[in-house]
Amino acid sequence: MKRSISQILGRTGIRIPLILWSIAVLYPIFWMFVGSLKSNAEIYRNPWGFPETLNWQNYVQAWSNYNIDTSVFNSLIVTLVGTMLTLVLAIPTSYAIERLQFRGNRFLFTLYVSAMMIPMVLGWIPLFFLLMDLNLLDNIFGLAIVYAVSQLPFTIFVLTSFIGTIPRSLEESAAIDGMSPYGVLWKIITPLSMSGIITVTIMNAIQFWNEYFMALIFLQNKDNYTLALAIDFISSEAQYTNAWGTLFASLVIAIIPVIILYAIFQQRIAKGMTEGAIKG
């Protein structure tokens, strides 16, 4: 009896902080969604209450008047291109570092890991002039390249831990059957590392979708703005036009894809990170 009571108290002591933390995280999101359905008068009159009528006009104004539709498209392009480019560069590099024996492969891996500790802010000014020389400044594809390079060390670090646990006998058997090294990489190593690939893909995609500072530095034309920059513009405008409902609506538009993506793949993300930690 005493043991069961102590177990209940122990579980309660763990659950109460988690419940409180969940409320602290979810309530601002809920309040933002409720605010996106209010008129400006309702927001000022009763900021914490429910809307009297559902005002979907805020979403229409955000989508059309503030060009959120263009910004969503730009963010989608940057996220897709950046994510795919990261994988195209990281998968062969991870395989070469982990499997191929050449002078300096451990040093190269250490160099990539060390790059994870260098703040990206230190490279913003050189990158600005480099993109300007390459005529990629104020270009969403240039921004996608910067994103891909910035996440390359992290992606390689994760993928090498997965590739390192794949039995070498599978590669040797494929080589005996006449498969080329490229065939081994793309037909054997890549499918067996799919948990790690999915994990880094989703984490990189969320990072690229939400990124703000590099987009602010490398993009100048409003037609090239990503979603984060468009929301920042609406936020500055809301101070003078009282478009708070429109601001809330744009924030909801920004977070819905992230929530859906994470909800669909949360088990794969948790599984991939757990396997990566064990395999590493």
Rank of each mutant, 00 (worst) to 15 (best):
G123N: 09
L122N: 03
N105E: 10
W186V: 09
L130D: 06
P153G: 15
I19E: 13
A254Q: 14
E275Q: 11
S161P: 06
E42M: 00
T241P: 03
W48C: 07
I166W: 10
G142V: 01
E211T: 01
F233P: 01
L108V: 04
I255Q: 05
S250C: 06
T274V: 13
Y112T: 08
L137E: 14
L127S: 08
K2I: 12
A238P: 13
I176N: 09
I163H: 05
N40I: 07
N105G: 02
N65D: 15
N55T: 15
T93D: 04
F157V: 04
M203L: 15
G178C: 12
G280I: 02
L100I: 13
Y240T: 11
M84A: 07
Y182H: 12
E172F: 10
T274N: 12
Y95M: 04
V88A: 04
T201E: 15
Q61W: 05
P167D: 05
A175W: 09
L261E: 15
N58I: 14
S22C: 15
I23E: 05
S39Y: 09
N105Q: 07
R11T: 12
M116A: 11
L136H: 06
A249W: 03
V121G: 14
Q266G: 01
L26N: 03
I91K: 00
L131F: 13
L89I: 08
A230G: 00
S75R: 08
F50Q: 11
N58W: 12
K2V: 05
Q61N: 15
S180R: 07
S22G: 08
V78C: 13
Q61D: 11
I188W: 08
N74W: 14
V88W: 01
Y66P: 00
V81L: 14
I166F: 10
S75H: 00
L85K: 06
I231F: 04
S94N: 04
Y112L: 08
N221K: 13
I19T: 11
L85Q: 14
F129T: 09
I14W: 15
E172M: 08
K222W: 07
I8D: 10
Q151S: 01
T53D: 13
P92R: 05
Y59Q: 14
L87A: 03
M117L: 07
S36N: 04
S75I: 11
V81N: 00
F109D: 07
I91S: 06
R11C: 11
Y262P: 00
I202C: 02
E171T: 11
E172Y: 08
L85C: 07
S114D: 03
F208R: 05
L159S: 09
F213R: 00
I176A: 03
Q101R: 07
L100A: 14
Y27F: 12
A215S: 06
L192H: 11
L219F: 04
A96T: 12
N65R: 09
S180M: 14
I260A: 00
F233W: 11
I278G: 07
Q267L: 02
S193W: 12
M32D: 05
L54N: 03
N55P: 01
S150F: 02
I231H: 10
L76V: 13
M32H: 09
A148H: 01
W21K: 02
G196F: 09
R268Q: 12
A148Y: 12
T70Y: 09
R3W: 09
G104K: 02
A228D: 07
I189P: 01
S169T: 12
T53V: 10
S150M: 05
A215E: 13
Q151G: 05
S173T: 15
D138M: 10
